[in-house]
């Protein structure tokens, strides 16, 4: 599909009825349509995992803004994903208290076991590894989120428990 055709395609064929209903609920307390831009991106991402070009065009059209403007918004925020991510996103805290607590070594261990660096997704699409600012759990450093769960007091043993180890062949 060319870009122009995409813009002209029917919003309803891109966004689900439920997504549109959820966006409408946000619009009810927002004075301008484009004011729901971030909410709409999050709503669409919630079920699909990420925001495809097609969805971006659909949202932009629904909110009566240009796709370029919405892209500027989408790419500003680190929790909006414009590329496919794995089933679970690992948000790995690399801020100061976790750094003092040795998070660099833990990060190397994860990369080693899963075979991915920051920004990459495992071959089986289980995990995407991303750095994240201080997760507000510095008293339990080092920490990370795996999907919806906060995992604290990270050490090699915990990483092995969670992801297996490269050596025993259970790495993803």
């Amino acid at each position: 599909m060319s870009k122009k055709e995409m813009i002209q395609s029917d919003i309803g064929s891109v966004l689900s009825a439920q997504e549109i209903a959820e966006i409408d609920a946000e619009l009810a307390h927002i004075p301008y349509k484009s004011g729901a831009a971030i909410d709409a991106l999050k709503i669409v991402q919630a079920k699909r995992g990420w925001v495809s070009d097609e969805c971006l065009q659909g949202i932009a059209k629904y909110l009566e803004m240009s796709a370029e403007e919405l892209e500027g918004v989408a790419t500003f925020y680190n929790l909006i994903y414009r590329r496919p991510v794995g089933e679970k996103v690992i948000l790995f805290c690399d801020s100061v208290s976790c750094w003092i607590g040795g998070c660099d070594d833990i990060k190397s261990k994860i990369s080693n076991v899963l075979g991915v660096d920051y920004g990459e997704t495992t071959a089986d699409s289980s995990y995407t590894l991303l750095p994240v600012p201080c997760l507000g759990a510095c008293d339990r450093a080092p920490v990370m989120m795996v999907g919806d769960d906060l995992v604290t007091h990270l050490d090699d043993k915990k990483i092995t428990e969670l992801f297996g180890s490269a050596a025993n062949g259970s790495a993803k």
């Binding site: 307390h29 927002i30 301008y32 484009s34 004011g35 729901a36 831009a37 971030i38 909410d39 991106l41 999050k42 500027g72 918004v73 500003f76 925020y77 680190n78 929790l79 909006i80 600012p133």
Partner: peptide
């Protein structure tokens, strides 16, 4: 309304936060 952010440290700065609430770049 409970409004979860879409990320970025700068959103904590109060006027950036307001821009984020308005659906803009923060």
């Amino acid at each position: 309304y409970v409004h979860p952010s879409a990320g970025r440290y700068i959103c904590g700065e109060e006027t950036a936060l307001i821009n984020a609430l308005e659906g803009k770049r923060a």
